[in-house]
Write a protein that binds this DNA or RNA. Structure first.
Lengths: 253, 253
DNA sequence: TTATAAAATTGACATTTATCAACTTATTTT
DNA sequence: AAAATAAGTTGATAAATGTCAATTTTATAA
């Protein structure tokens, strides 16, 4: 998995400068010669096909990754040989930050669709951050955002009812798309119902039933993976989180 | 809350050098003159009494905190005026890392008992990290550990049954005590059953019943807040996580 | 100390959700 | 295109959990 050749995507040299995710990513705060330095250390790997792995449990940590397009899920194996999904990763989001401390990845990252990522060798990033105060600052901000987002998700998983969990999940996905300039009311879920159920600590059947119920109530339309949010307020009401939307929209990261 | 005077605890000047949490904390990787610099910027605040706040939702972020003794819970207000507990913080653990990105605290931190913390002004820490590569490295490691731990907890909250959640919770607390040199088989839970239930997304009554069931099955003894773990394997079995213990014990942070 | 309030436990019951099974609809593969 | 496989949906039922109420225990205040 990790022996993919580095390629110029579609024959062009994709630089941070031209990247649509620039604002969300590390280069946000630097420019000119500094940006070139960062650009230089970033490796752009051959896109992953669906079900290919970016890294495996226990594999050595040496890079963090930014999703450029597509999406991945991360999961941990459980005692009974199942997997437990710990997260979904959309364009502009980082992967691998949980591995810095231990030096190896605590989870598996698997592409949910054709997915391309930027690979940033961490030791070189650290060196660069030592040189460039604004880069260090941005790196710390991004890690803080990761912690914040994780806590947001714990808020989601701490909900008691299936209704509250699924609606909070849909809102969360929706807002993440919005942050990246995509529609927040119409999108495709790249993960299966099974993955969603697993992630939310519910049975697949319960998730399926909730989807049909939300649809019957006119709150969403869900045709397979294609979701449209019809009644945002109702979703928020059910999710029962006061500041989910404000929190995220206030975000300046 | 934030206007507490800075005091020398019990009249002695507690330095990082003498701190029992040294190994877990930021100074781990530095020494001598460098340690003095760090020591200099750290403020040791007057201990918080039970139910006092370390920070409130929306309050300006300018410091991160390390718990020296005692414990705190963090929580977010929900739409219906309730609180949702997002974490418990034991000695040696950091607070406030989720606020760096936004510049204000997204949750409330409240002392569960008499609690003392070290306050580390973040801008000064950033400056110092710019000077000292090993400190930058340690800071990144600690933030990574925070992300890792959060994901561990999402694994916990993703469990379907109350049994699995409570046992995973007890194991998690136990291992955190162990990491800090306390007993992993006998400890006091500083949080109420209500806080535990809230955190785990369960009803208080369910938590209470689980405690009695675990006790009847000889897996633990629980006398109010005093917990003794009698059958570690059974707990692990119920938690259904394969590597919880190994993961944590391998931890070199 | 006594009085009062809060926290924890227990029981009865209603509701929700998981499980099992059947079936339909997509998606791959041959 | 047909066959095979996987994913998703729906129904019936059992099990788990939430809710309500009563009670006991512990903590706090007068």
């Amino acid at each position: 998995m990790r022996d993919n050749k580095i390629v110029d995507l579609h024959g062009i040299n994709v630089s941070c400068n031209e990247c649509s995710l620039h604002q969300l990513c590390l280069p946000q705060s630097i420019d000119g010669a500094e940006l070139e330095k960062l650009d230089y250390i970033i490796e752009r790997k051959k896109p992953l096909k669906r079900n290919e792995y970016l890294f495996q449990v226990g594999s050595a940590f040496d890079s963090i990754y930014v999703v450029r397009s597509g999406s991945l899920k991360t999961f941990s194996p459980t005692i009974d040989g199942q997997e437990q999904v710990t997260g979904f990763h959309l364009p502009g989001e980082l992967l691998g930050l949980d591995a810095i401390g231990k030096g190896h990845h605590p989870c598996v990252a698997k592409a949910l669709e054709t997915t391309s990522v930027c690979e940033i060798p961490f030791d070189r990033l650290e060196e660069l951050a030592q040189e460039l105060p604004t880069l260090q600052h941005q790196l710390l901000r991004l890690m803080s955002k990761e912690i914040f987002d994780d806590q947001e998700l714990m808020l989601l998983l701490g909900k008691k009812t299936a209704e509250a969990r699924l609606s909070a999940f849909l809102l969360s996905i929706s807002l993440r798309f919005k942050q990246r300039g995509f529609s927040s009311t119409e999108f495709y879920l790249s993960m299966s119902r099974n993955d969603i159920a697993n992630y939310l600590g519910l049975a697949v059947e319960t998730v399926s039933r909730m989807f049909t119920r939300f649809q019957d109530d006119g709150i969403i339309t869900a045709e397979r993976k294609h979701i449209m949010i019809k009644n945002w307020n109702a979703l928020q009401q059910m999710a029962g989180i006061s500041q989910l939307s404000e929190k995220v929209s206030k975000s300046s990261i």
